[in-house]
Design a protein around this nucleic acid. Sequence first.
DNA 1: CTGAAAGCGCTAACAC
DNA 2: GTGTTAGCGCTTTCAG
Lengths: 343, 343
Amino acid sequence: MAKRSITSYDVAKAAGVSQSAVSRAFSPGAPISKKKRQLILNVAKDLGYQPNAIARSMSTARKDTHQRSGMVGVIVTRLQDPFFAQTIADFSRLIQAQGWQMLLFTVDGEGDVNTALNTLMQYKIDGVVILSAILSEQMAKVCRAQGIPVMLYNRSVEGLDVNHVQIHNHDGGRLAADFLVEAGHRRIAFIGGEDGDATSAAREAGFVERLAEAGLSLFSRESGNYTFEGGAEAALRLFSRSERPDAVFCASDVMALGVMHAARTEMGLEIPDDFSLIGFDDIPAAGWPGHGLTTIRQPVGRMISEAVECLVSNMRDTSLAPSKQRFEGQLILRKTVKRAQPG
Amino acid sequence: MAKRSITSYDVAKAAGVSQSAVSRAFSPGAPISKKKRQLILNVAKDLGYQPNAIARSMSTARKDTHQRSGMVGVIVTRLQDPFFAQTIADFSRLIQAQGWQMLLFTVDGEGDVNTALNTLMQYKIDGVVILSAILSEQMAKVCRAQGIPVMLYNRSVEGLDVNHVQIHNHDGGRLAADFLVEAGHRRIAFIGGEDGDATSAAREAGFVERLAEAGLSLFSRESGNYTFEGGAEAALRLFSRSERPDAVFCASDVMALGVMHAARTEMGLEIPDDFSLIGFDDIPAAGWPGHGLTTIRQPVGRMISEAVECLVSNMRDTSLAPSKQRFEGQLILRKTVKRAQPG
DNA sequence: CTGAAAGCGCTAACAC
DNA sequence: GTGTTAGCGCTTTCAG
């Protein structure tokens, strides 16, 4: 039932000027006298006029540079995960500050990314960031063809020429192993995320590599599906065997906290007295005093601003070459690792 | 540098049909023969053509029903908060399933809501949901005038004729008080969210009301700013006085967990032996075994589907009257409340 | 069922 | 500076 909304023509008529004058009044730097602009702005405010971003985007489509909609697409899995929630929150603030809107798409599996991307592209987004999901070579090509910069966050794809920023997962795994080995642990277990997940696999590979250098191999391994419950269940399995690990490294903090809670509450085990525990990410809950989880921190703030900065410059100048940034994880010492008892 | 993207004209030419045929091929139910549609769809796929949602939205603007952009705006504060993260995650999935896209706007203070709404309206969103923030009467009027349905989630505004779904905060507060009183507690404290926050105030009011019926008044109160750290600090203040509470009710789980961790780790207090604790929301971490936080659960799943359903029907038929839904919180018994020691 | 043509609201040449 | 005009890509009458 809504009546037709107010257009620049309505304002023009009311202000006694041409429609293009109204357009100019709303375009910073357009050739128009101060006085006339002010008049138009006033009339516009009275009428409650706001330029139609959709129409604006339509008409700028003409330029050879691709259509600027002012929207960037964001594709994300597991938004309810604290790590991603934080990431999205930060990203949202920064991209807004740069004058872009965020079109958010939640996907369940990695396969949905293509669909998501297709849908987003129909909205003529100026760029897209993909959180922890993979981009098919074919879609990468499509994006390039359309001049849409892509930012892969927390994931990289071999041989794909797109921007990415991510933590150095392999090194992070090494860091964890190094610390555990130096602390004298010998029966070291690993709990990974979803099976086949590249991030988890890279953390594991680095971890195992460093273990091998110390003459050790993985004592046991489980999958925890990147969830609290998954971590807890993995712990139960790990410690139900006759031979128990003396240290556990988890591919994410959420899983590590699952291990911790299960250990204390369901298995009557003390951390770090009965075994040492290391996580990955450094989510807020890891630092809660009662948890004190030792972990590998991802510098989320710096990573996100790098990602935004990079994406923005690519959107402003689509001819820029993709940049690939890797950040080093930092070992955060808290209370869940101690020197192994000899024997 | 991107070349002009593929339009319906390109497809028309390649398929040897008119442009309008292409349009019809992509509009379900449009008058076109099966054979021709199939041909066009094939050609389109070969060319990598996808209809331009922006342009589509432009041209449908003509109808007297308001412009359908296929986007709904979402305005949110504190996205990093687990409760909101869960809410957004659920909302995102449901609204996508209904065929809408989500334009997400993060605001810092309540004052920014107007700005956010204005920006979103420039994108001609079909509807908007506002999470835990207030809507000015003036903006409500503007939305109505433009035929944009508004859904207030987790907040209501007296005398404003817009949709809302929320938890019954007052009753939730009563529930908490009732349980504590029945358990024999007498020195009962409250930790609120941000000062002046209506949600927290309503929970407190219900809480205090039930206390009064038992002949009690609030033993003490603090503000915890809806954060973990705020809750922890509030606890420190609460227990540094000579007279200590025997029970604490927090306006949110995050704050309650702050209290719990501070109590155990920094104050050497046991829960529930030294005092009882109740939270509000029932976020995932509340149920973690080591926490076992007794709390008032918000049925997020049901609330969100109600919100989406309501918003969607309002978007499909803008003449619908606003609906106001209130859900009852549910007391979840876990391990942080016990009968008070006599004396 | 089909093609031609008229817009949706705006920006950006283009003349004055 | 300013008004006029031609599109941006699409949907939807309107004739046939």
